[in-house]
Amino acid sequence: MKLAVRLMMLSLVLALLFGVPWWTLVSAPTGGSGTLFWIGTAIGVAALGFLPLTMFLGHGPAQSDPAVIVGDTLLGVLWVVFSWSVLGVFARGALAVAGVDGALAARLVAAGVLAISVVLVAWGVYEARRVPRVRTVDVAIRGLADGLDGLRVVVVTDTHYAALDRRRWSERVVEVVNAQQPDIACHAGDLADGSVAKRHAQVDPLAEVKAPLGRFYITGNHEYFGDAQGWIDHMASIGWEPLHNQHRVVTRDDDQLVVAGIDDPTGKGLPGHGPDLPAALSGAPDVPVVLLAHQPKQIADSAAAGVALQISGHTHGGQIWPFHYLVRLDQPVVAGLSRHANNTQLYTSRGTGFWGPQLRVFAPSEITVLVLHPER
């Protein structure tokens, strides 16, 4: 019964994702007949069969990297076309109210949706694959010692090293990170998709990050779709300190700051893993705590524990507009600095890389510099 329900839901989703663009770009502007109608319909039917096939070959037992690249990219393109096709339906309604002939309106909308989709896909690929822009944010921390004023915490997260070989991109990210002169460097999870054996060459440039007060790493949910412990061990082997429900005390000029990290909630299914904030803070001195927690929704526990600042990723800022509206249903924040109960602040990064489709539309990637100051 569960399998039948899942297949039914999958069929419904595919019908919507393909059906709305087919109606907007093929059926309505051609009047449902003619050569262009049949060519467009054939392309749609082929894509409808090709997408599930490539997704299965890429993300199923075969783990085919070429299939991942093709399938994920097709999914991203389809989402862009679907989103603007939905808007096209409303545009046709507006044109009808304005008295524009129905056939002409359908052709105008189809041309507009197609043009916008092509531009956004091209721009989205560029935005996803470029070296992220640096975003600098000043954060006032209650109780932070004066000796730690100006402490620079550089954050990368959601690098998602995967089927596309992004070793050179990784090297350039490291160059940008080092140019920010971080005191502390953090990776807030979702390091890679795949095994250490397949992806370590893309991750290894992170060994060159320079941060005199520490380089810290936590697991995201995607580590638990593969080999979480393997990635924890590998990051330790290249000089990063995994914070596996642990904390470290950072000292500068005899003033202290606690940097803690907890596992992603997905880890609960793996023995010895899963978030344990009390364990992470056990024995910590009474100074402000900066906590790495992959998902923004972990903020509720952080605020209850009196954490000064939680650093998260996970959302990608939505990655491809308007997906951020769906993300917001699951997470309290999609991006940026926010304040929560007990004076706890949360910084949610839009992520440094991308997951799945190599597109970012209206959700640019970032390398974040959090500059800490005492709250006056």
Rank of each mutant, 00 (worst) to 15 (best):
V97S: 07
A192R: 02
Q358W: 03
K210Y: 10
T219D: 06
A197F: 04
P242L: 10
V154Q: 10
L10Y: 14
P66S: 02
G230C: 12
P29D: 07
V259C: 13
G336A: 01
H187K: 09
T73S: 02
G353N: 15
T41K: 06
P242G: 08
L291D: 02
V176L: 03
G318A: 13
I116Q: 00
L370E: 05
T352W: 07
H59K: 05
Y217H: 15
G269F: 15
A192K: 06
L120Y: 09
A335Q: 11
G353L: 12
I43M: 05
D138R: 09
L213R: 15
G150F: 02
D253M: 15
M9E: 07
V121T: 10
L337M: 13
G313D: 07
D254R: 14
V70Q: 00
H273W: 05
R339C: 04
A163I: 10
A103P: 03
V86Q: 09
A15E: 07
A46Y: 07
L144C: 05
Q345S: 13
D255S: 12
L16Y: 08
H316S: 10
T157E: 03
D255H: 13
Q298Y: 01
R135T: 13
G44M: 13
Q295S: 13
Y217A: 12
G99S: 00
L144V: 07
G58E: 00
S365H: 06
P29V: 08
V80E: 07
W169M: 03
F18C: 10
S282K: 09
T251M: 14
R376Y: 00
S338D: 10
V70F: 02
T348I: 02
Q331A: 04
I311S: 09
A145T: 08
S85Y: 02
R142E: 08
L164Q: 00
R6V: 11
V153G: 03
A197K: 02
E208P: 03
G194F: 00
A91D: 02
V289N: 04
A110L: 10
K198P: 01
L292M: 15
D263C: 02
V80Y: 07
P61A: 06
L78S: 00
H244P: 04
G269P: 02
K2D: 09
D158T: 10
T35A: 14
I232A: 13
A335P: 03
L87G: 15
P275H: 02
A304V: 00
A163F: 06
N343E: 12
V121A: 01
E208W: 03
A280I: 00
T352P: 05
T348L: 15
V80D: 08
G71M: 05
S195C: 12
S237R: 15
D227M: 10
V173G: 04
G102D: 06
G351Y: 01
Q331M: 10
T266K: 14
W23K: 08
S338M: 05
T219I: 00
P285M: 13
V333Y: 04
L337Y: 13
A207E: 03
S195F: 09
P364A: 01
L10N: 13
G283N: 11
V361T: 04
A211M: 08
V137A: 03
L36Y: 06
A98N: 05
G147N: 04
